[in-house]
Amino acid sequence: MAQKNIVEIKNLSFGYGNFMLHKDISMVFPRGKVTAIMGGSGCGKTTILRLIGGQIKPKAGQVTVDGKIVHKQDRQGIYELRRKMGMLFQHGALFTDLSVFDNVAFPMREHTKLPESMIRDLVLMKLNAVGLRGAHKLMPTELSGGMARRVALARAIALDPDIIMYDEPFAGLDPISMAVICDLIRTLNDALGATSIIVTHDVEEAFSFADYIYFVADGSVAAEGTPKELSKSKLPFVHQFVHGEKDGPVPFHHNAPSYKKDIYEWV
């Protein structure tokens, strides 16, 4: 039953109204691997995660999770699939009215009928894995950005998911927190035997731990490969991205009529 690729995206198109965000994207996420999706801001990386989670429906093509086509599932089916997923949101998305402990316990209490003593042990175990067992009494507002992200990670892995999705896990973190998260992603993935999908634009971090990388630009996959292959890539887009050049195939200027025309014929 177990497919080699736990998540598959086939000829996926998605957009709002007439604007197409994704055009004919195909990706595979093999079991047990850490795969990164990279690309500039606003190219629809996060949307891909939401498509995998079934929060939005594709216009064409399909996303398959564990052999099931996501957008053809009913509510129950989608919820069934989501129980296999854990997602780390960009800013953690911790429930601000619950303590760190209750945040991590939340999915367990909602989905299982485990006795409170067992939930306690499990929560402390998860918090220990992210190094925050000592902070279980704090409220989310008392945490630093990096700590909040780690608590959210503990919550995401609360039910031992098969797939862990990370939405910009490094955004707005200091280098130390970044390194901690980086390390956690890799160790948790291997310890849990899970599959990780990471959406990011941090080149250095992604190249350091990912097994495979997809570059998304202009709504389609611009390049793909292992970090080693990509760093040697001669593709102009990949080169610009990896080396952080300001102008190149991705222009510095947003689409606009000529400067001269705008200045003289402004209406």
Partner: peptide, 13 residues
């Protein structure tokens, strides 16, 4: 705004 509702959705709640 802080994605708490989305997070809940993704936890199948």
């Amino acid at each position: 705004a802080t994605e708490q509702l989305s997070a809940m959705e993704m936890m199948a709640i």
